[in-house]
C-alpha cells in the first residue's frame, strides 16, 4: 500500500498566517496597555495641576485681608469625585491589566506622592477655613492582606455614601516611597489594613457600621 501524503506546505503557510494574525492581536493588547497608562499618567498630571492652583488659592486666602474660604471649599468639593474617579480607574487598570507596563509603577508612585501632597493641603485648609470634610487615610497591600479586599469594599461604599465630605487617601504599602513609611511609622501602623481618621489610628478591619460611627460620631 502506498503511504498517504502529508500537506506540509499547507501547514507551514497556515502557521505563518496564524502567527501574523495572532501576534497582531497580542501587539494590539500591548499597545493598548501603553495607551491606557498614558491616559492614567495624564489624568494624574492634570490632578496635580489643579492641586497646585488650589494651594496657591489657599496661600492667597491666608494672605489677603478678607477670608474668602467659600470659593476654596467649593473647589475641594468639586475635586473629591474627580479624585475618586481616578482612584477607580487606577484600581480597575491594576486588576485587569494583561501586560506589565513599566510606566505604570512610575504613574502609581506619582499618584501616591500627589495624594500625600493633597492630604497635607487639605489638613491646612481645614484648619484655616473650618471645612466640614473628614479625611481618611487607608494603608493596604495587594500582596499579603486578605482583609484589605473587604476593607476596600467597605471604603468604596463609604465613598459613595459621603460623596462630597469624605476624602479617602489610600496608600499602597508595597510602593517604594519613604513618605508612606514615615507616615506609617509616625502613627505606629503595625498591621494591615489600617485606617487613620482625623489623626487617630485604627488597626485591623473595620466594618461598615463602626466606620460610620467613626466618620460621623453624631449620627
Amino acid at each position: 500500500m502506498v503511504n498517504k501524503k502529508i500537506s506540509w506546505s499547507f501547514y507551514a503557510i497556515t502557521l505563518i498566517i496564524t502567527i501574523i494574525v495572532f501576534t497582531s492581536g497580542i501587539y494590539f493588547g500591548v499597545l493598548l496597555s501603553k495607551v491606557k497608562v498614558g491616559e492614567l499618567q495624564s489624568s494624574v498630571s492634570d490632578m496635580e495641576k489643579i492641586r497646585i492652583e488650589q494651594e496657591l488659592n489657599l496661600l492667597l486666602v491666608n494672605y489677603l485681608p478678607n477670608k474668602t474660604c467659600d470659593i476654596i471649599s467649593y473647589e475641594v468639593e468639586e475635586m473629591i469625585p474627580q479624585i475618586n474617579e481616578l482612584a477607580r480607574e487606577l484600581t480597575y487598570y491594576e486588576e485587569t491589566k494583561k501586560f506589565e507596563e513599566t510606566h505604570y509603577i512610575e504613574t502609581k508612585r506619582e499618584y501616591m506622592i500627589n495624594q500625600i501632597k493633597y492630604w497635607l493641603y487639605l489638613e491646612r485648609l481645614k484648619s484655616s477655613c473650618n471645612l466640614n470634610i473628614t479625611t481618611l487615610i487607608y494603608f493596604y497591600s495587594n500582596k499579603d492582606c486578605d482583609l484589605c479586599k473587604d476593607q476596600g469594599i467597605v471604603l468604596d461604599y463609604m465613598k459613595n455614601r459621603h460623596k462630597n465630605n469624605l476624602m479617602i487617601f489610600a496608600f499602597d504599602k508595597d510602593i517604594e516611597l519613604n513618605s508612606i513609611k514615615i507616615i506609617m511609622k509616625s502613627y505606629g501602623v503595625e498591621e494591615l489594613p489600617s485606617i487613620i481618621i482625623d489623626g487617630k489610628l485604627y488597626q485591623g478591619f473595620i466594618d461598615k457600621d463602626s466606620l460610620e460611627n467613626l466618620i460621623n460620631p453624631s449620627s
Binding site: 497582531s24 492581536g25 493598548l32 496597555s33 480597575y92
Partner: peptide, 14 residues
C-alpha cells in the same frame, strides 16, 4: 472607554 478594551476585543472581532 479605552480602559475596557484589551486583546480580547481584538480576538472577539476576529
Amino acid at each position: 472607554d479605552i480602559m475596557y478594551v484589551d486583546f480580547y476585543s481584538f480576538f472577539l472581532a476576529a
